[in-house]
Design a protein around this nucleic acid. Sequence first.
DNA 1: CCCTGTCATACCCGGTAGGTATCACCGAGA
DNA 2: TCTCGGTGATACCTACCGGGTATGACAGGG
Lengths: 287, 287
Amino acid sequence: MDTLETRELRYFMAVAEELHFGRAAERLGMAQPPLSRAIQQLERRLGVSLLERNRRGVSLTGAGEMLLHEGRAALDATTAAARRTRRAGGADSPGGPRNRLVLAVKAGASHELLHKLLDAYAAEPDAAEIEVLPSGTCEQEGMLRDGRADVALMHAPFNSLAGFDSEELMTEGQIAILPAGHPLAAQRTLSLADVSDIPDLPLARWSRQGTYPPGPGPEIHDQTQLAQLIALGRTVAVFPDSARAWLWAEHTAVPLTDAPPVVTHIAWPAHSRSLALAGLIRTATRL
Amino acid sequence: MDTLETRELRYFMAVAEELHFGRAAERLGMAQPPLSRAIQQLERRLGVSLLERNRRGVSLTGAGEMLLHEGRAALDATTAAARRTRRAGGADSPGGPRNRLVLAVKAGASHELLHKLLDAYAAEPDAAEIEVLPSGTCEQEGMLRDGRADVALMHAPFNSLAGFDSEELMTEGQIAILPAGHPLAAQRTLSLADVSDIPDLPLARWSRQGTYPPGPGPEIHDQTQLAQLIALGRTVAVFPDSARAWLWAEHTAVPLTDAPPVVTHIAWPAHSRSLALAGLIRTATRL
DNA sequence: CCCTGTCATACCCGGTAGGTATCACCGAGA
DNA sequence: TCTCGGTGATACCTACCGGGTATGACAGGG
């Protein structure tokens, strides 16, 4: 009566994202007519029209927008439940309640902090096994939400902590990373304005889920690519202090005076109740 | 393959809560054998054993505990999606995108603040319609989670803000509410210790989802009941300052010196993106 | 040793999810 | 204007599976 099955949600999400029944059906690996019928049934059961069938295409109604947002959260929660249950059970069978936590970290960030955290936690009396899951640019939120990870290191203001519990671990300034020979590399400090429009060094554009923001700089999706382009004198980058750990000989780091400080948090889903997680958080806040 | 249908989740939750297939089946309005089979299928598909079938009864495995917690969140998110979509659509049809927000407030609390908030918001240029939903003791969290409400007034430290976004609205001290004639009512201030074990006035025990904490005091599930019992000289209560609004003539309020301050927040699900909600929050923080 | 309460198995039936074929509609061209 | 390509909706069929009833297997308690 008012149940909203997972399958229906999946179907609707596909249609709402594609705005095209045929493509959505293909993406779902099914034929178009059953999909049309399923969406109609969903609309009837909810007593609400979700899609505006215009001539030549489909668009979302207000209710459709709502279901797109809320349904995303619901689907994430559902797949998170499945994944975490699988993990809990897989650990369960080999022998004893061998807990395992998946920790998502932005690849390459906070190396030293991560090292200290893992070492300190491993020394705890009954430490769980920690699997470190490198995540793409700002992808930790999604990983926590859909259960790929149990806990994450996040960096405000880049990551949003909305909806998670978190503890502050570290605050650091930001630096500009320049080619060693560049004139600006001789400065003791710089401002954001100084580095944001150097004619010969446009800021690189990071990939976010495969798309790039517009601008003149080179397209990047990997720290190594970026490091190389800087070393070649093609671009400049802004990073937290801890990025000094991976600088090359051809790089020069110059502190930025007016860049917002980067705050590293440890964050986890607010409803988590795991002992292993509690232990990790305790260890982290004591560092 | 890895989908975890809503129906399966519902079934498992029932069994996990009842720890008894027969009762769970009855609660679900179905027969026991199909339920057994569904749970078996679920376990097979997840590749994990969720329940320990002992002689004479059922208990949860580690994975089962995990699915109980995570599944609750997932089910709440799903019913929230359905409810909010229905609301968004119902408003959609009469005429124009007539937004409506459901605001959960603990019945009787923060009367003055609520009044000011509603008045101020109604004066806004394009204010949505606000439906005030009185909630039981500390039930606002659940209402936000399963979509019965869109936004809530919460009172730290009684409500937990975990998993929600929130803004602080007001801080107030707490008072003891005594029968007017009682000796302690003559004091200018009291401490928690003073009121926690008055021999003739045991603290009342509030109902939480139908159960009562142990203790000598009377069982209460309604502010009016409590007010009456205080007026009759049978009990004493501790409340935030703003409770003075509903005191009777037979009541006396005495400030408590060492009670933790009560902070009223406005809270909402972290993923909300509604314009109407943003307007309400803006109004609230400007009060 | 039977009786009772539990969950599992066996078997059947009906609803429905999904497939194929086709229709109805509209816009773009020739 | 007529046709053609592409859209979503309809009609109809099949097969799967969710749910029901009847019964089995097993363990404790009298």
